[in-house]
Write a protein that binds this DNA or RNA. Structure first.
Length: 706
DNA sequence: GAGTTTGAAACT
DNA sequence: CAGTTTCAAACTC
């Protein structure tokens, strides 16, 4: 029995999963089996589990898209539970015959979806459900053709608790659906399907923890058992995004030996060896944690922890909805991480340099897909060249061997970056700020992804950011990063905007800067110090206000005394929000009816209009000048009809001057008065100009003769 | 660009 | 928790 330690669930900071500030305006509430709110207490018998699991969606992924040596299988066990509940899954049995048929060229994810009996199968791709005896399964097959297939048990239309016997009694007919808008269905016969009970609960709408247990089926059984844990953050995220939950990949069972034929592991086999998965930290708190890597797969409502090896590399841990990218720096201690070229299901060896992210890792960065778009995007990684997390065969350590109790309390407010293992050198964690990783990877990411055919919408990374200091997501994304000018803080205190915003200093004007990778230890300590002082230090200051108040308000409020809260000294004013009851400002003029504020706003608006007008005028002028040159250039180059000024060359000017000097000398010779001399010179200048103009219509070069 | 003002962060 | 100091950004000239 594998036990998932409670530390696994708490290791990842809740803060990074805090979706409260995530702008989800564009996301209509999406229904999904896990959080559609359709969960109804079932009449079925309680789930035979060790804990209080109320619903058990299970996902089985079989990845055979990789070459034979990399063929993998995956099992994901998703457990719907409340925020504190830890669960044990019941064994799920499924003969492998049917799956094998599909797995020949596809990765298959079988997902037993806990859902209400009334749930239909048209909610969204990937969430097709079936209700054989109150259970629902989704099988997703990912083929090289980019086609996802949902293998579906026939809908029995049974009421809760009424169809379980039928499901067991009758051979299960799976419908093969394609994800991504396809509606064609192919009947596929699959052997006796899983029949474990799943109790539907209203708690489905609550937090969902998905525990995925992955184990390589390599020749050597010494490989660590790997856990993949996904967990939703809160109900808010679930409501809108759980439509993607069922595509979470799961257990990775791979046969890496070229000699060993791909081994098909049935669910029954899988779970018989692991019988049941005790997830309850309450029951198995002492079980040592397995090294895992955390990667978010399904959106902000999930944390996915993948097992890791200890090979030297950098693991990016990205959490959609968070403005932080988390990167794990680990050092290779084994030679097992042999590169498996030719398989896009493979993690090649990675460099210890955190700056370098190889293709495999980039592809692992599915969570880069923003929360807002996950619902639409999720199927893509599964359908595009099989770049699925479950296919990776190289697992890496992500969790420290020790629980790091001194850090863990702060993980709930994980800052822009931290070393989770202080003093352990490159074996520790380094949590990189999102912007930094974005900067690091932007070119590489696009390049690698494009070369691999992986769809990478360019706006994805920025969309994943949280609103930054009151700015909207798009504002924060488009907002040019302001270089800091820190001198004394080493950019390791909140005085430094870069540090406070979770960014590394880059292109700043700071001196003695420690806010970079080269000083990750110091930086980690500084982060810890900040969090010790204020656990909320790295949370956005501008968050949602209480009900009935403005949507945006300063979390702490300002303390302005002299600025009247109408200058950018005031954090409220700077964030373009009104001061609120939380502010302790004196002489505040930053309120709705403030005439000063209105005047200021009008002035600001007027100034903005002027700037826009000036910009438009400049643009128009530039356009006209450009157009003028465009129109005159052909005349200049053609030789015919050349503009007169084009003949005023240096030689012509010199000749003109000689003519004028000659005229002056003549006037002097004949002893003309000065006025007459000037007139003679001017007349000569006029004649020169006329000659130049007259030459404009001629093709040959003008000659000026005095 | 230098100097001043300001308020948050850090410190006591 | 309040008072003081430090700091860097905002602002003024």
């Amino acid at each position: 029995m594998d036990v998932v330690s409670p530390e696994l669930n708490i290791l990842l900071p809740d803060e990074i999963m805090d979706t409260e500030a995530i702008v989800m305006d564009d996301d209509p509430p999406a229904e999904s089996p896990a959080a559609s709110g359709q969960s109804q207490p079932s009449d079925d018998a309680p789930i035979p589990m060790e804990t209080d699991v109320l619903a058990v969606p299970e996902i089985v992924s079989l990845c055979s898209d990789a070459p034979p040596t990399q063929r993998t299988q995956a099992l994901t066990t998703s457990i719907t539970t409340d925020s504190t509940l830890c669960s044990t899954t019941s064994a799920t049995h499924l003969t492998s015959g049917g799956l094998q048929k599909l797995s020949a060229n596809h990765q298959i994810i079988l997902n037993k979806v806990a859902s209400s009996p009334g749930a239909d199968t048209t909610r969204s791709p990937g969430t097709t459900t079936i209700t054989p005896g109150g259970q629902k399964f989704m099988v997703t097959a990912i083929g090289k053709s980019g086609q996802s297939i949902v293998l579906q048990l026939p809908h029995t239309g049974s009421k809760p608790g009424s169809g379980q016997g039928e499901a067991k009694a009758n051979p299960q007919h799976f419908k093969v659906l394609t994800i991504g808008g396809r509606t064609d269905m192919k009947p596929v016969m699959v052997g006796q399907a899983v029949s474990s009970a799943s109790q539907i609960s209203t708690l489905q709408a609550q937090q969902l923890k998905t525990v995925q247990i992955a184990k390589k089926t390599q020749v050597s059984s010494a490989g660590p058992i790997k856990f993949i844990i996904t967990k939703p953050v809160n109900n808010k995220g679930l409501t809108a995004q759980t439509s993607v939950s069922n595509v979470i990949t799961g257990r990775v069972l791979s046969t890496s030996s070229p000699v060993t034929p791909p081994r098909t592991i049935t669910l029954s086999e899988t779970l018989s060896s692991n019988s049941k998965i005790a997830i309850s930290p309450l029951k198995s708190p002492s079980k040592p944690m397995k090294p895992v890597q955390t990667v978010t797969v399904g959106g902000p409502q999930f944390k996915t922890i993948f097992p890791l090896s200890t090979s030297s590399n950098v693991q990016q841990i990205q959490v959609p909805g968070s403005r932080f990218h988390y990167v794990r720096l680990v050092t290779a201690t084994t030679g097992s991480s042999t590169g498996q070229a030719g398989s896009h299901c493979t993690n090649s060896s990675m460099t210890a340099k955190p700056m370098v992210v190889n293709t495999a890792q980039v592809r692992m960065s599915v969570p880069i897909i923003p929360a807002q778009t996950m619902k639409q995007v999720v199927p893509k990684p599964l359908t595009s060249s099989g770049q699925v997390l479950t296919t990776q065969t190289q697992q890496r350590l992500i969790m420290p061997a020790t629980p790091l109790p001194q850090i863990q309390p702060n993980l709930t407010n994980l800052p822009p970056g931290t070393m989770l293992a202080p003093g352990s050198g490159n074996m520790g964690y380094t949590v990189l700020p999102a912007h930094y990783v974005t900067q690091l990877q932007q070119s590489a990411y696009v390049t690698l992804a494009s070369s691999s055919g992986f769809p990478t919408p360019t706006g994805i990374q920025t969309q994943a950011r949280l609103p930054l200091n009151g700015l909207s997501t798009s504002d924060a994304a488009s907002r040019p990063r302001k270089p800091c000018n820190c001198n004394k803080s080493q950019c390791l205190k909140l005085y430094c905007d870069c540090f406070a915003n979770g960014e590394f200093c880059q292109s700043c004007n700071c001196t003695n800067c420690f806010n970079n990778l080269e000083h990750e230890t110091e930086r980690a300590k500084a982060i810890k110090a900040c969090l010790d002082r204020n656990p909320e230090a790295f949370k956005p200051k501008i968050g949602k206000g209480k009900e009935g108040e403005s949507d945006r308000r300063h979390s702490k409020g300002c303390n302005c005394k002299r600025s009247g809260c109408l200058k950018n000294y005031c954090e409220c004013y700077e964030a373009k929000i009104m001061c609120s009851s939380t502010c302790k400002c004196v002489g505040c003029k930053n309120f709705e009816e403030s005439p000063e504020r209105k005047t200021l706003m009008h002035l600001a608006d007027a100034a903005e209009v002027r700037v826009q007008q000036q910009t438009a005028a400049k643009t128009k002028l530039s356009s006209q000048i450009s157009d003028l040159f465009t129109r005159t250039t052909p005349a200049i180059t053609s030789g015919g009809g050349r503009m007169p000024f084009t003949f005023v060359t240096k030689e012509v000017a010199e000749a003109t001057c000689e003519c004028l000097l000659e005229q002056a000398e003549q006037a002097e010779l004949i002893q003309q008065p000065q006025a007459t001399a000037e007139r003679m010179i001017l007349e000569e200048f006029g004649r020169c100009l006329m000659r130049i103009i007259g030459s404009a219509g001629k093709t040959d070069c003008p000659s000026i003769n005095c």
